[in-house]
């Protein structure tokens, strides 16, 4: 089953997302700040990263940009979950390469659907990528 890294500094939200996604059978790893997230991204590979924007050490946009600029991690799907609602930040996240942006409060069902969609898109496009290489 696909593995997902959840990065979120709010304890309640972190646990909740872990539980909700875990229920659907995904393998969930968590990080509660930017530093821990970078460590975990370094050592493991994931299919999807779900990240908050404002957290200690590094913000979520940095996570997105680091993933997108790394050849080996470019394929990872990224979903940003944040309470920030201004247009600038949202477009910035997409420009950096986030696949989805969910504004808090989120709908649990929506998160699940988006993850499923990301995973299925990736499976169909992965053949393309390999052929290009």
């Amino acid at each position: 089953m696909a593995s997902i890294l959840v990065i979120e500094d709010d304890d309640i939200m972190l646990k909740a997302v872990r539980n909700i996604l875990g229920k659907d059978g995904y393998t969930i790893l968590t990080a509660k700040d930017g530093k821990e997230a970078f460590d975990k991204l370094e050592n493991e590979t994931y299919d999807v990263v779900v990240t908050d924007l404002m957290m200690p050490y590094a913000n979520g946009l940095e996570v997105v940009s680091r993933l997108r600029s790394d050849e080996t991690k470019r394929h990872i799907g990224i979903i940003v979950i944040s309470s920030v609602g201004n247009e600038e930040t949202i477009t910035e996240a997409f420009r950096l390469g986030a696949d989805d942006y969910l504004k808090k409060p989120i709908m649990a069902g929506e998160l699940l659907i988006r993850i499923r969609k990301l995973l299925s898109n990736k499976n169909s496009s992965s053949q393309l990528v390999t052929r290009k290489k």
Partner: peptide, 15 residues
């Protein structure tokens, strides 16, 4: 208080 902080994070059916 805990329910409220959950509500701040979730809407929809969970909310």
């Amino acid at each position: 208080d805990t329910l409220i902080s959950y509500r701040k994070n979730f809407r929809g059916e969970v909310g």
